[in-house]
Nucleic acid binder design. Structure first.
Length: 763
DNA sequence: CACCCTCGAGTTCA
DNA sequence: CTCGAGGGTG
């Protein structure tokens, strides 16, 4: 977004016209943001407008008047609540948008201060600035920032927010003190709120900040009892953290950090994430750390605030007309960005569902480059209102998965066209149809031979929740089911999986696709590049030199039927795959059940069925009623199992796998219906969630250990969860556990938990 | 029958 | 990780 170059002759009039336009636009945006809690454009665009205005202002200072968007403290007084004049003005902070700009600020600071002062780093919470006025230790009013001079009284609502003391702890409180802080909606609570709002037919909030603002501005008058209840609940989910003081002539502390200790001692909520660091370099470390762990905090953060810790130096540095010189806000790159919707393609998954997905101009969002995003189905495409060719708004939902929020209507030029859902399967050409009358999802009915579905099922067989076959993932599954060579793929259905031999793998050639575009990559000769995933080319020995053997040939039976060409050798991946398949034949019955791809039968249902019946034969012989009697299996799953066995090519899978040696039974199982004694152990009757990394265990291993100790390993935290084991890298589950009051055990004590059960908590 | 847990399925990128 | 839907429980 390069600014138009102003000519050296300086066309003042042109600059003024542009500045006027920018001012008007910014006034609109500020008005929407502060008065109506609406964000019309991504933050990045807003910042860009201001940056441009600042540029113009640098060239022509006379363009920037007293009510310019650059000068006024953003925000205006709302008439909703009574006005409150702050005893001391609430400043906003200057912003920088990169570590480099921060270093410039720090360098200036060090020059002004004549030394490198200690800095206090804290997170910039994306919430609402608030000022609490305490008179002789008693809360007398709470006000929003408003325009910085006058805010609105929200005391009645603030009193309902947990953690804000009406009376300060301890004694010796000043006559008057204004405590400044930020009210916010914890991210986890925000999600829950929106779900409830939707159910109640109320507005759904775009982000936690809007939710906090909206919640705080509710009025009790004229509300029904249910509405009041909803209001109460919303307020009770808000939280506050304090980060400063206003009016107080002689604070009993000589530094920002000392101030926080004092405030904490009074029972005010202070952040756990504030640190005093020695210099700018250390501050950069803090900034980068939380840039990477933005979502490991309970609230949304849009940056880091760095303050001079020493109060004496703060006073010395003073403030400009709008912001103190001793503090700076370092803003993180936006998490919502614009990019072009290049096209919408349709993929087919293992169940045959046809899913449209967006192909995007690759763009960086929250740390990674995104080129695709799912659109779920044609209804979602319609509801989001996106057209091919649109500029669209992208964000990362829940940290990872990119999501298209919608089009930027102003940027349409008429060349965009609507997406039309294909009527036939893009992979096999069969007509797509809903599985049931009234279903939105379209499916490819060619379950047996649609290459996409076979590929998906084979991949699922190899997955961790299935037979956990190393070397059978996305790439191998595609190679086995859709190679360019041979013409007849080694697998036309999964029935032949356990009959695969090395010589079936050897000839396979696939076309290499570019990860970004999905298009075939051209090789040296310009034609699509091919790869042989199960074979390596042996380098031809140079003439005149003795053939060197850099690596020994892989172990392989020379008397076997293998018939590869002399210049190639079997890759280790091929040998590994065959060996893994061999091992899979004796794996647990539940894994083999999952591998059959029966609808609704995943690891948990499969475990229940396996444990109860002991063998696939017993499951097959059981009626729907017998199946549904199993704990965790209801009529729907029971029917799905019965019906699965009625399809001839399904039965063929079972028969060919069994013939190849797949065991399909739990050895020494007493037989169907045998009472399975509840496992006794330290964790008997407890459900345990493990999140983050636990040293010495894989994710699976930890679950196994919980089962072995008699516990139940569950994936998500709820009120019923007995205990949550939290290791480094834990995310929302830890937050949720805290919110629900579920006991937490640190990962280091996992082993102890396994041995002693909940006794570990009693310390 | 109305909840609330769970599970299954689909999903993206390094 | 999130969504929708199955299963169990009060």
């Amino acid at each position: 977004m390069a600014a138009t170059e102003t000519s050296p002759a300086a066309d003042f009039e042109r600059a003024r016209a542009e500045a006027d336009e920018l001012e008007a636009r910014l006034a609109d945006l500020d008005d929407a943001y502060y008065e109506r809690d609406t964000t019309l454009v991504p933050d990045a665009d807003y910042d860009a407008l201001k940056a441009r205005l600042r540029e113009l202002g640098t060239a022509f200072p006379e363009l920037i008047g007293q009510d310019s968007a650059l000068v006024r403290v953003s925000g205006r007084r709302s008439t909703l609540f009574a006005p409150v004049v702050h005893a001391e003005r609430m400043y906003s902070l200057d912003n920088v948008f990169s570590v480099d700009e921060f270093r410039e600020w720090a360098a200036r600071l060090e020059r002004d201060a004549g030394r490198a002062p200690a800095l206090l780093c804290e997170l910039k919470i994306d919430g609402l600035a608030i000022s609490l006025r305490y008179a002789a230790g008693v809360l007398v009013s709470a006000a929003t920032r408003g325009d910085g001079v006058t805010g609105e009284d929200v005391t009645a609502n603030v009193l309902r927010i947990p953690g804000i003391p009406r009376r300060l702890a301890g004694s010796g409180h000043p006559e008057l003190v204004e405590v400044r802080g930020e009210i916010f909606f914890p991210v986890a609570a925000f999600e829950a709120l929106n779900a409830e709002q939707a159910v109640a037919g109320e507005r759904v909030f775009a982000n936690p900040r809007n939710a906090a603002s909206g919640s705080l501005r509710q009025k009790a008058e004229g509300k029904s009892v249910t509405e009041l209840d909803l209001m109460e609940r919303r307020l009770s989910r808000l939280r506050m953290l304090v980060h400063g003081i206003g009016a107080w002539p002689h604070p009993a502390a000589d530094s920002q950090s000392g101030m926080y200790e004092l405030l904490a001692g009074w029972g005010l909520p202070t952040s756990r994430n504030a640190r005093v660091v020695a210099d700018a370099d250390a501050a950069v470390g803090f900034i980068e750390h939380f840039g990477a762990h933005r979502h490991d905090v309970e609230h949304e953060i849009d940056g880091v605030v760095v303050k001079v810790d020493d109060f004496a130096l703060q006073r010395e540095l003073g403030a400009t007309s709008r912001a103190p010189r001793w503090a700076i806000a370092v803003k993180y790159p936006p998490e919502q960005v614009h990019t072009r919707l290049l096209g919408i393609e349709v993929g087919v998954g293992r169940t045959g569902r046809a899913t449209p997905y967006a192909v995007l101009e690759p763009v960086r969002v929250a740390g990674s480059v995104v080129a695709r995003a799912t659109l779920h189905n044609q209804d979602v495409v319609r509801v989001k209102g996106v057209l091919i060719g649109d500029t669209v708004v992208i964000r990362k939902a829940g940290d990872v998965i990119p999501e298209i929020l919608g089009p930027v209507l102003e940027l349409r030029d008429g060349s965009e066209r609507a997406f039309e859902m294909p009527t036939t399967c893009p992979e096999c050409g069969w007509p797509l149809a809903p599985a049931k009358e009234g279903d939105i999802d379209l499916r490819c009915p060619n379950a047996r031979s649609c290459p996409a579905q076979v590929r998906g099922r084979v991949e699922h067989i190899g997955s961790r929740g299935g037979l956990d076959i190393e070397g059978l993932g996305e790439v191998s599954a595609a190679a086995l089911t859709q190679p360019v060579i041979p013409a007849t793929p080694p697998l036309t259905t999964e029935a032949g999986l356990f009959d695969l031999r090395l010589e079936d793998l050897f000839p396979i050639e696939v076309i290499v696709k570019d990860a970004e575009t999905g298009l075939p990559k051209p090789g040296d000769d310009g034609r699509p590049r091919r790869e042989t995933p199960f074979r390596r080319q042996r380098k031809a020995p140079k003439p005149g030199q003795p053939p060197t053997k850099s690596r020994p040939d892989p172990p392989y039976d020379p008397d076997g039927p293998f018939d590869g060409d002399a210049q190639s050798i079997v890759s280790a991946a091929a040998i590994e795959l065959i060996a893994e398949l061999q091992r899979a034949k004796d794996k647990e019955l539940w894994r083999q059940l999952v591998a059959l791809n029966i609808r609704h039968v995943g690891p948990v249902a499969a475990r229940a069925l396996a444990q109860h019946f002991g063998s696939l034969d017993a499951i097959r012989a059981a009626g729907a009623a017998d199946l549904a009697a199993v704990d965790g299996v209801g009529p729907i799953i029971a029917d799905a199992v019965v019906e699965w066995f009625l399809v001839d090519w399904h039965v063929e899978i079972v028969e060919r796998w069994a013939a190849a040696g797949v065991r399909f039974a739990i050895p020494s199982h007493p037989g169907p219906g045998a009472a399975t004694a509840a496992i006794d152990g330290p964790l008997a009757g407890l459900s345990v969630v493990v999140t983050g990394t636990v040293e010495g265990y894989t994710r699976e291993g930890a679950e196994e250990a919980v089962l072995a100790a008699g516990g139940k390993a569950v994936g998500s935290v709820s009120k019923k969860t007995s205990v949550v084991v939290v290791g480094p890298g834990a995310g929302s589950k830890e937050t949720k556990a805290i919110a629900l009051g579920v006991p937490i055990v640190p990962a280091e004590r996992f082993a102890e938990l396994l041995e002693r059960g909940l006794d570990v908590l009693a310390e």
